[in-house]
Design a protein around this nucleic acid. Sequence first.
DNA 1: GTCTATACACTGATAGAC
DNA 2: GTCTATCAGTGTATAGAC
Lengths: 209, 209
Amino acid sequence: MNVIQKKSRPRVKNEEAILNAAEEVFSELGFAGATTSLIAKRAGIPKANLHYYFPTKETLYQAILGKILSIWLHAAETFDDCDDPADALGRYIRAKMEISRSHPLGSKIWAQEIMHGAPHIQGSLETTLRDWTESRVKIIQRWVAEKKIDAIDPHYLLYMIWATTQHYADFEHQIGVLNEGRALSDEKYEDAMETVTRIIVQGIGVSGG
Amino acid sequence: MNVIQKKSRPRVKNEEAILNAAEEVFSELGFAGATTSLIAKRAGIPKANLHYYFPTKETLYQAILGKILSIWLHAAETFDDCDDPADALGRYIRAKMEISRSHPLGSKIWAQEIMHGAPHIQGSLETTLRDWTESRVKIIQRWVAEKKIDAIDPHYLLYMIWATTQHYADFEHQIGVLNEGRALSDEKYEDAMETVTRIIVQGIGVSGG
DNA sequence: GTCTATACACTGATAGAC
DNA sequence: GTCTATCAGTGTATAGAC
């Protein structure tokens, strides 16, 4: 037997069930609207048990935000693998679109948190996000200097990419309504990815490849 | 004296104060997080008085959503004044960006409502928004048929315009953090409008003018 | 680790005096 | 029209038996 115990089976299983349920409920109802009793119910455990694993609603919410940020940062790496604008941006846009498809709930929670003034993640914004952004701004500025793309302020390009890709997660309900009430099929989603990539790449005047 | 009385002065004044305060509070805390007592406090009246004008939190919220929709529809008209793609889209993007600048709170409330699955405005989505969208889709399809723009599905273009323009309202906090902690100046905002317009117009391959 | 019972705070909404 | 006092309901969180 190890002195340092592995986390017990029920703990791992329960924490996972709680986190999944919490992601659903927070995205549907917001932080204030979410109730611990509803989260517990969806996780299939009594409310008191939830508070045993996560003492407060706040700690549970922080855990969810941390998970989202780590996914987001992982996708961000796709920016670094290549120095060709069309290729680097194409990969990045695709990575972000795929996250919107696979983790729409996390994207919604993040969006709501920002809209409310980021009361729980101000620190991450001012450090992680700011640093990441400024380093990529420099890359794009180099592309401009090398006349690989049109002369634009990189910030507005990044905002456009974030906005457009996240829209497919955050506004999936509206998109569904405008798609005859159904979610986009895989084929249509692929089409959307290609269209988005093409408009942006062509829009910044990428030359050569 | 008229038989049909004009609305009394205090009623008009109070309703306006309540609506303004409610817009603030709903955008900051969401529907569930907003409390009638906080809205009343910001409007400078006792809570019971708020319930005199708006019987329930729900009626107040509906009033706000109605206001937002009417502003939104007004901007939508800019699409109709011209049949030249660059001109029509340019005007529409500018109108939407100006709404994001002047009414960011309404945009945030709308976004949250959609993210939560549109529980209070499903009807408007399925009628007003769907009709408006389909009529504009037809216009854009005609541009494609006439080879005025590249062959794209108009839906993805519209989503991109909505996402990008509304991002400046919904994510203004994040944009501020990435702009040395300050809101964008009028000059920078103008720059953003021009960049957004240019990328999209050039991105869909507008030919001629 | 699990769960019942409950403390305590706060919410939306109303009654009723002014 | 305005406002104080208050109610019924619900929320987070915990105590303590098992």
